[in-house]
């Protein structure tokens, strides 16, 4: 049996919102250590890797490994029925064909229960090995979201170049071009505003703006995003959870 209680429904809401436009359905793999998901979008350009560790939950038990096939649109509708501050418990028996979703209002004496029909999903799994990284950038997630939105107005591609002490984001299209350069900065009073750049090799990569638009839907999950880049390899965009992460692997574009 699986039972996982979130202190606040808002966390699961944010996770599902960040995933549902990339993949319509995916398997949630539940073990005694927590819940993980690997899902690839239809075009196999973007991969989502989610880990919700046991410590994320207020209470967690999973006696036997369970795979829950979940339609994210339906899941989103049901968890949207709870208030952000409610306790949210997900519950499934071994071999269950539904997932129980229970909201508890912390003030009123009110409990709401829903059941989501589970799906049998035969999904592609990709082998994501430990990747080498040539450059790592950590910046406020809201800043990265704004850069992606602003550059998308110019072009279908965002070019990221990283040198020793700066990262440059630029786009060029029919109406014109634009760029944003960020540099490392330590903000002791507001550590969430700090920017770090570490570099083994200079980077010059381009990514599809439409996929980046999907990735930045995770912005509310974390104040920071870490971007790991390697020349001619997928970029990794990581949003940390209180205990775990939501990662996106995005295949770059290449010049013909």
């Amino acid at each position: 049996m699986l039972e996982g209680k979130f202190e606040e429904a808002s966390l699961l809401k944010k996770i599902v919102e960040a995933m549902k436009d990339c993949v319509s359905s995916c398997n949630f793999n539940c073990t005694e250590n927590g819940i993980s998901v690997q899902a690839v979008d239809n075009s196999r350009v973007l991969l989502i890797s989610l880990l919700i560790e046991k410590d994320t939950f207020e209470e967690y038990r999973c006696d036997r490994n369970i795979t829950l096939g979940i339609g994210l649109g339906s899941f989103s509708k049901i968890i949207g029925n709870g208030a952000n501050s409610d306790y949210l418990t997900i519950q499934a028996e071994d071999d269950a064909d539904t997932l129980g979703i229970i909201f508890e209002d912390k003030v009123k004496d009110k409990i709401s229960e829903y059941n989501l029909k589970l799906l049998d999903i035969d999904a592609d799994l990709l082998e994501v090995d430990a990747m080498e990284t040539d450059a790592t950038i950590t910046l406020p997630s809201a800043d990265f979201a704004k850069i992606c939105k602003d550059m998308k107005t110019l072009s279908e591609s965002l070019q990221i170049t990283v040198t020793k002490d700066s990262a440059k984001f630029q786009s060029a299209g029919e109406i014109g071009s634009g760029s944003v350069v960020i540099k490392p900065k330590t903000d002791i009073d507001h550590p969430e505003e700090s920017i770090t750049i570490s570099l083994d090799k200079p980077i010059d990569l381009s990514f599809g703006s439409k996929y980046l638009s999907d990735i930045i839907k995770a912005t509310s999950l974390s104040q920071k995003v870490t971007i790991k880049l390697t020349e001619d390899s997928p970029g990794v965009f990581e949003y940390k959870l209180p205990s775990g992460y939501l990662r996106f692997y995005l295949a770059p574009k290449f010049d013909e």
Partner: peptide, 14 residues
């Protein structure tokens, strides 16, 4: 022009 790579050449199906 630019072409979009898929993830398959990098990761491969399990």
């Amino acid at each position: 022009g630019e072409q979009q790579w898929s993830l398959l050449p990098f990761f491969g199906l399990l």
